Amino acid sequence: MFQYIGSSSSPWMNKLLHYFKRYIGEYFHPKLYLTTLLFLVACLAFNFLVDFENTYVDHYYGSSFRWLLYFGMMAFPFLFVCGLLYVFDINRTWVYSREFWLLFFVGFVVISLERSFTYHDGLLAELDYVDRKFVRRLIAKFKPIFITLFSLLVFYYCYERPRDQNRSWYGLHIKAFDFKPYAFLILLVFLGIGVASFLGDLTQYYPRYLKVGGINFAGKHELSAWVPMVTYEMVYGLSFLGVEFFFRGFLVIGFARVLGGYTVLAMVGPYMFLHFGKPITECVSSIFGGYLIGILAYYSRHIWGGVILHVSLAWFMEFFAWLQKLYND
């Protein structure tokens, strides 16, 4: 059992602190961390200087080539950190591991397909503009579930399940999951987002609901205004189950056998790249948030803590952005 850090604070907070202290003690490598940080800062600066994703990647919207671009974009930072493990002689076995390359190609093929998938646009072409805009945004938020989650669950059942004695389903199982350690973190998220809502780049991007055409959809179909709003926000929240399943489930728990705890650091890069196109404040916070939630997933072998925190973060952003707009109006 865990040896808690102190006796004055609650046991469940000590458990979280123990995870962080244990991880730093086992996996902190100064050169690795410094080089990774410089790499992430350089990638972040490059993206915002040239608007790489919105200008170049999205230029190929609807093209199969966009799938290849997203594969390179998402796989590159993960492979870069793995390369650092080799250069610094921390872990070189992954290079010769068939399991690593199988997981690598399966995972990044799936996430790049999900990010580049546009085939539903053809099915919606017959709808008028109001319906097409709202339904298209709902489908976009549902893609992490329909494509990423379902695809990797099939892979888990066929490949991972015979090797996983704990039947963790990449952290999707609910056995022995304890919600209490995350309650305090949710409070911190609430307070942090409340303060961050005064930053202009966040209030320009959120609330997302105002940009999906739900108000016009409700008016056209004579629905109460809350019906499309609740529908969108529920699907929006559900989408983070797919996000957490890939980044904390597949990339952290799935790669743990090959990379050990260093897989947390390797995951941070692709997770930051996922936030390109969003406000820079959110991109920077994704580095630290992804790292901390990754540590929790690595030791707990659950993704539900990350799901709860991620959904709370998204809904709090929507809520505080609404308040800011109401106040400013």
Rank of each mutant, 00 (worst) to 15 (best):
F65T: 06
F65C: 06
R66P: 08
W67Q: 11
W67D: 11
W67P: 01
L69N: 05
F71K: 12
F71L: 12
G72W: 04
M73W: 11
M73L: 13
M73S: 02
M73G: 05
M74R: 08
A75K: 13
F76K: 05
F76C: 06
P77M: 07
L79Y: 06
F80H: 03
F80T: 01
C82I: 05
C82M: 07
G83S: 07
L84I: 00
V87W: 10
F88T: 02
N91G: 11
N91H: 11
T93W: 10
T93R: 15
W94E: 03
V95F: 02
V95D: 03
Y96E: 12
Y96Q: 13
S97K: 13
S97Q: 04
R98N: 10
R98G: 14
E99V: 10
E99G: 09
E99I: 07
F100R: 00
L102D: 09
L103A: 04
G107E: 02
F108E: 06
F108D: 07
V109K: 04
V110Q: 09
V110H: 03
L113K: 00
L113Y: 00
E114F: 13
R115A: 15
R115H: 07
S116N: 08
S116R: 08
T118N: 01
H120I: 12
H120W: 15
D121F: 14
D121A: 11
G122I: 10
L124C: 03
L124Y: 06
A125K: 12
L127A: 11
L127S: 03
D128Q: 01
D128R: 04
D128F: 02
Y129N: 13
K133G: 06
F134N: 11
F134H: 12
F134M: 12
F134D: 13
L138I: 05
L138W: 00
I139L: 13
I139P: 06
I139M: 08
K141Y: 14
I145A: 05
I145E: 13
T148I: 15
T148P: 07
L149R: 06
L149W: 06
F150D: 06
F150A: 14
L152K: 01
F155T: 09
Y156L: 10
Y157V: 15
Y157K: 14
Y157I: 14
C158Y: 14
Y159Q: 00
E160Q: 05
E160Y: 15
R161T: 02
P162D: 10
P162T: 00
P162E: 07
R163A: 11
R163W: 07
Q165Y: 02
Q165T: 08
R167W: 10
R167I: 12
W169E: 09
W169Q: 08
W169I: 11
Y170R: 05
Y170K: 04
Y170V: 01
L172W: 00
L172H: 01
H173E: 11
H173G: 12
I174F: 15
A176M: 13
F177H: 01
F177I: 01
D178A: 13
F179S: 11
K180G: 08
Y182L: 00
Y182H: 03
A183R: 09
A183E: 09
A183P: 04
L185M: 14
L185V: 15
L185F: 13
I186N: 01
L187E: 08
L187I: 15
V189N: 09
L191T: 02
L191K: 06
L191G: 08
I193M: 03
G194Q: 12
V195Y: 04
A196I: 01
F198T: 15
F198V: 05
F198W: 10
G200P: 14
G200D: 12
